[in-house]
Design a protein around this nucleic acid. Structure first.
Length: 320
DNA sequence: CATCAGGGCCCTG
DNA sequence: CAGGGCCCTGAT
């Protein structure tokens, strides 16, 4: 366990409009001790060149709507590293996306308009690296939320590193090269089941291709999807999450899992269970190249409401 | 107690 | 390209 100290603080400005809370906190995501949202601030770790940095994002207390970034480390952070970290944060939280056209098409849609209005400026965001999010999608596979949470906790306890900063204790993810070397049975002992093989493949791949994330960020959607699916253990469902949340492809709505199918059937078609293809067609027709962003707005709005009022039909559809 | 599907993916035929 | 097998859990 290492304690990190505040080394740098500055205010940064996303493109306008920016929905602070909608971007930093996603009610539809499952809880894990790798990030923490409290007092309107988000804490998480970024690993760069095998060093761990603590990051705190908070609402700028001044009048402008900037985001205050606090960087924590165990020693002084050189200027160029600060620049890299700020750039990485801007990327992970979609701070340079331009959403005017989405606002325009949403205003003509009776279902989306009120939702877009409530969350105007919300971005797809992911506090984690591509590899880290990929590990999360692997624990999501073929498991209910409670089991996914247990698998990730077990992995973090075994391979993660605990750090302390700003009065909180969090895990930083393990590096790919660490997991790449372990025995399959050691992973299976953590009750991840057949996913052990996927973790090994994915970890070896990232350990051997350290610049993979930088490269894939520059690729168009379909090439990126193809590269991702070439990795063992990565299929259409995981690819969908990665394309949108990590790589910010706002038109990445190409796959609907069974539980999403039920929820979207209810939202868009008033309840009858509608085949996946029809949901995809409808989304393309209504929202065009903004389809995944539109779906994201609908989901986050729904899960946000769920935290405040009981939504009977939703409770019946999802299991925790 | 047994059985089964679950917030997929791989592999086989 | 359809469908069985894979791991573990909680629900029934």
């Amino acid at each position: 366990m290492s304690k990190l100290l505040l080394q740098h603080e500055e205010v940064i400005y996303p493109t306008y409009p920016f929905h602070y809370r909608g971007t930093l906190r996603k009610p539809s995501h499952f809880p894990a001790p790798v990030d923490c949202f409290k007092n309107n601030s988000l804490l998480f770790c970024i690993r760069m060149a095998s060093k761990i940095f603590g990051v705190k994002l908070s609402l700028n207390s001044g009048k402008s709507d900037g985001v205050c970034v606090s960087l924590y480390s165990n020693d002084n952070i050189p200027k160029d590293k600060v620049t890299d970290l700020i750039g990485e944060i801007r990327y992970r939280f979609g701070m340079d996306l331009k959403l005017e056209d989405f606002m325009n098409i949403a205003s003509d849609d009776p279902l989306l308009a009120p939702v877009e209005y409530r969350w105007r400026g919300m971005r797809p965001s992911c506090a984690f690296s591509l590899y880290e999010l990929l590990c999360i999608t692997i624990v999501l596979q073929n498991a209910q939320v409670s089991r996914s949470v247990k698998m990730l906790q077990a992995l973090l306890r075994q391979y993660g590193e605990t750090v302390q900063f700003d009065g909180e204790e969090l895990y930083a993810f393990w590096l790919p090269c660490l997991l790449a070397e372990v025995e399959e049975q050691e992973l299976r002992d953590l009750k991840v089941g057949y996913r052990a093989k996927s973790f090994l493949h994915v970890s070896r791949f990232f350990a051997n291709n350290p610049s993979f994330e930088d490269e894939i960020r520059t690729l168009p959607r379909d090439s990126a999807a193809k590269r991702l699916q070439e990795i063992y253990g990565v299929g259409p469902a995981s690819t969908g999450y990665l394309l949108f949340e990590s790589l910010k492809h706002l038109d990445a709505f190409n796959h609907v899992s069974p539980w999403e199918q039920k929820i979207l059937s209810h939202l868009i078609f008033q309840g009858e269970i509608v085949p996946m293809e029809r949901i995809l067609d409808e989304a393309r027709k209504r929202w065009g190249s903004w389809n995944m962003l539109a779906i994201h707005y609908l989901f986050e709005d729904l899960f946000w409401r769920r935290e405040h009022v009981k939504i009977d039909w939703l409770e019946a559809l999802i299991r925790l």
